[in-house]
Nucleic acid binder design. Structure first.
Lengths: 112, 112
DNA sequence: GACATATTCTACAGCACGTAGAAAAGAAGG
DNA sequence: CCTTCTTTTCTACGTGCTGTAGAATATGTC
């Protein structure tokens, strides 16, 4: 599920700042001057997409990211890789394109 | 630039079959019963997106993919990775999630 | 030139997203 | 309990993208 610009900004905010947030906090932290209802709409859509979870126990409700930015991004990577018949071939081209420093890092990451 | 379902089908077709194709060939190969104009519209949009190139020398025009499916997909991967502040952290989680066989393949791919 | 074929223009419906007002629901204080 | 403030939900609209294709135009063939 692709994200729009504002949805993305909200997710970035939730990822960057720890803990659950109220809609008003999100609005105050976001750039620009949005209405709270706008933020609430976006948060609801993100919730429906499974990216945000809401604590609706007490008011105001608190919102937080369901998974980390890294896990979410890995999901995107696998989605992209799933759209292709030869995953290996793509990885080959990808690895061929990364710099030597990053290649070393990848090698290091594979020790386990 | 994200692709719609039909756009994706057309790209898959151009990637799977070699050589440039006419709009009619594309239409005949695609599932469903689309009008040629539909196919032409999609091909034009894909051309505008830089994914398809057209040989408009003789009629009917011939269309082909600009880059391989693998190169295009690598571009998508890098786009996804570019949206994140810590690329390395995402790669770490990604590599942690792949199977041992694929990890071995990646290791092998890094020999060069 | 008449006819067949191919391409471009124009158009529209559906959907996702940014955006927010109006209405409803809940809290808080007197 | 009644009023008032805050928060949430409903509803709505403009825009841009995509699937879809007819109408109009251009090009090739005989």
């Amino acid at each position: 599920m692709a994200l729009g610009d504002l949805e993305r900004s909200v997710m970035d905010l939730l990822w960057d700042r720890p803990g659950p947030h109220t809609a008003n906090e999100v609005r105050d932290t976001l750039a620009g001057d949005l209405a709270v209802t706008t933020v609430l709409t976006v948060l609801s859509r993100l919730e429906k997409k499974g990216l945000v979870q809401r604590d609706g126990g007490r008011r105001p409700h608190r919102y937080g990211a369901v998974s980390s930015r890294e896990d979410h991004t890995v999901g995107l990577l696998n989605e992209v890789l799933g759209s292709v018949p030869d995953r290996q071939a793509v990885l080959a081209r990808f690895l061929g394109g990364i710099g030597p420093d990053e290649a070393a890092a990848v090698r290091r990451l594979l020790e386990d």
